[in-house]
């Protein structure tokens, strides 16, 4: 998968180990230390960087797992660590001071004061911004911080409060932020009823029912449809299945000083990575050359086959 991203033109690729130290801790995904070693070599040979995600939150008694992951990443020579937990940030800043630190969106740092704190205390070199800021807000923020900024441009649009969402934990006892898995597949069930509709459940909670010809979304509580006494017809209580797509806004993002663009999808396929990364590579190169980006159709790869510019365009995006 890392190779697919590099081959499609990514300048840098995020990856994680096969454990709770990263926020995409899904079965069969991620890297052993040996795999990471060869993948870093491949990326470097092709001029790309590898950023190791250690962006979940360590809990009492489990910190050695994050320390070992950081030590291993430093030994292998990853180009940066992306972190959210201040304990993990402090450990890397102290023990691996030569390594670059990036601040994950999981840290939920959206003000100059918060980002400046991370820069001052841990030497953070880049902050990934939460997907709740408009373009003018990003411009203002950039003027008041000393580090690079990175924004999401494509992928999942499950906002909630990034780094603080406990819906999965509430439903099944597994924490998105501390165990690294939102709606872990081991707790998801799909049943088909006699009418051909699919009923999606997380743990013991039914979270949606998709009619036979209806588009589906991820089985997450925030994207579920529910009924209440006041509103008996099923409705999206939080937000509907939809993906972020900012390809049209690339010139605006460049103009306000965004340094790096992030495509979400470590748990997606080679086909997704190839198409989305390849499409954005061409669009970014066009913008860099002063041309309008060639907008390619990525709708088939979006959640619910719907896309939005989210809060980047307006505070009320629903």
């Amino acid at each position: 998968m890392l190779r697919a991203a590099v081959d499609a033109g990514a300048d840098a690729v995020y990856c994680g180990f096969q454990n709770a130290t990263n926020a995409r801790n899904f079965t069969g995904l991620n890297f052993t230390s040996e795999e990471l070693h060869s993948s870093v070599a491949y990326a470097h040979a092709h001029g790309a960087k590898v950023l190791l995600a250690l962006n979940s939150f360590a809990s009492a008694g489990r910190f050695p797992l994050w320390k070992e992951a950081a030590d291993c990443g430093a030994r292998i020579g990853v180009d940066a660590f992306i972190v959210a937990d201040i304990g993990v940030a402090a450990y890397i800043a102290h023990h691996h001071p030569h390594c670059r630190l990036h601040l994950s969106v999981q840290a939920g740092a959206s003000s100059p004061e918060a980002i400046n704190f991370y820069c001052r205390e841990f030497g953070i070199r880049r902050a990934v911004l939460p997907r709740i800021l408009t373009i003018p807000e990003i411009r203002q923020l950039k003027a008041e911080i000393p580090c690079e900024i990175e924004t999401f441009v494509f992928g999942n649009h499950g906002l909630m409060v990034e780094g603080r969402c406990s819906l999965t934990n509430y439903a099944v006892g597994i924490s998105t932020n501390m165990d690294g898995a939102c709606s872990p597949p081991s707790k998801v069930r799909y049943d088909r009823d006699s009418a051909g509709a699919v009923i999606a459940s997380l743990g013991s909670h039914v979270i949606d029912r998709f009619a036979p010809d209806e588009q589906a979304g991820y089985p997450t509580i925030c994207k579920g449809r529910y009924c209440t006494a006041a509103r008996p017809e099923p409705f999206y209580a939080f937000e509907e299945p939809i993906s972020l797509n900012l390809m049209e806004m690339l010139p605006a993002l460049a103009a306000v000083g965004v340094d790096a663009l992030k495509i979400e999808g470590r748990q997606r396929s080679r086909a997704y990575v190839g198409n989305v990364v390849g499409g954005f590579r061409k669009a970014i190169d066009a913008v860099a050359a002063g041309r309008a980006p060639d907008l390619i159709d990525l709708l088939a790869l979006t959640e619910g086959q719907k896309q939005t510019q989210g809060a980047f365009m307006t505070k009320k995006w629903r």
């Binding site: 589906a216 997606r268 396929s269 997704y272 790869l301 979006t302 086959q305």
Partner: peptide
């Protein structure tokens, strides 16, 4: 590796139980 499982799931082209 030519198709994206999530996209095929969203579009209901594949079904899993």
């Amino acid at each position: 590796g030519c198709g994206d499982g999530d996209a095929l799931f969203f579009s209901r082209d594949i079904h899993i139980t």
